[in-house]
Design a protein around this nucleic acid. Structure first.
Lengths: 152, 152
DNA sequence: TAAATCCAAACCAATTTGCTAGGAATTGTT
DNA sequence: AACAATTCCTAGCAAATTGGTTTGGATTTA
């Protein structure tokens, strides 16, 4: 039931893009640096997100990536579905109708359906904006506790 | 985020034991036959559940396994935790306090906590009795739709 | 034209998954 | 006492997955 590093790194990179939304494109180098993951690996993840239409890219010097839509219009479920392949806890409860020949007599099916419904609820109602906002509040609070930064 | 076959087979075996609760012990052979899984493999799963104290065993001929407690006192979370090792979607949100050095600055942490809370809610409030009851209703309904069985 | 960047594909090591195989110990039945 | 049914224990193994690295471009812009 674990999420893989793809989901973790990739989602956090998307939050970074949400925080930078409106500004210029962000390079993989800078995204990777923030998480301590290799640029090449993160590039693979972002590339998948681009193919799925969630981010746009601009090539060449000063290029990079940006969200293709405003952060409030991208939810976590979409992102994780791309990165993890699927967000279902078991194949036979997905919308893709993976056939399970004894679905109607499976003693665990009601549980899987209920569990998946709760998961989907969280994933579909949380947007990148929500995450970015949470993060801003979090870091603001951390700053308050720090001694004031030196003024230039 | 997928559950493994351990969780699926093992949990369904536990439901079978719940349905047989009060009667004599059930052998792995009969548990395995119902799911079309090998006896040897299912044995490993049940063995883990026994070591965790969820089932009791009686050796020798006519032996087998039984729930160690009434079905309403065993919840799904306990079972899956044994079979899958853990039911957390990511290590740093478990009760085991796996250290994550940037927990307080992680932009995804609020999401993981929320997601995990919903999952835990389902797993801790669903008992084996609930599953067995659902299953009984399900099969009764199936029987209604069938032509009546021959009377002896 | 050189630096920065995206893009694609192959390759690799380690781990996990999903089993199989074999035998030892225990217990009810005959 | 013999035996058949059963749990119990351990080891091994092939395939898939994970978590990357490596290589080699292709493209764009300062």
């Amino acid at each position: 039931m674990k999420l893989s590093t793809r989901g973790r790194y990739g989602l956090k990179a998307m939050v970074d893009l949400a925080l930078a939304y409106g500004g210029g494109p962000v390079s993989t180098a800078s995204l990777a640096a923030q998480q301590g993951v290799s640029e090449a690996y993160l590039e693979q993840l972002i590339s998948a997100l681009r193919k799925a239409g969630l981010v746009t890219s601009s090539r060449g010097a000063q290029g990079g990536y940006a969200l293709s839509r405003p952060p409030e219009e991208i939810n976590v479920g979409e992102i994780l579905r791309v990165l993890e392949g699927s967000t279902t806890v078991i194949d036979c409860v997905g919308s893709e109708r993976v056939h399970c020949d004894n679905a109607c007599s499976c003693s665990a099916r009601p549980l899987w359906l209920k569990l998946q419904a709760r998961i989907n609820e969280v994933l579909s109602t949380t947007s990148l904006k929500d995450m970015a906002d949470d993060y801003k509040i979090q870091t603001e609070r951390a700053v308050e506790k720090q001694p004031p930064a030196l003024q230039q």
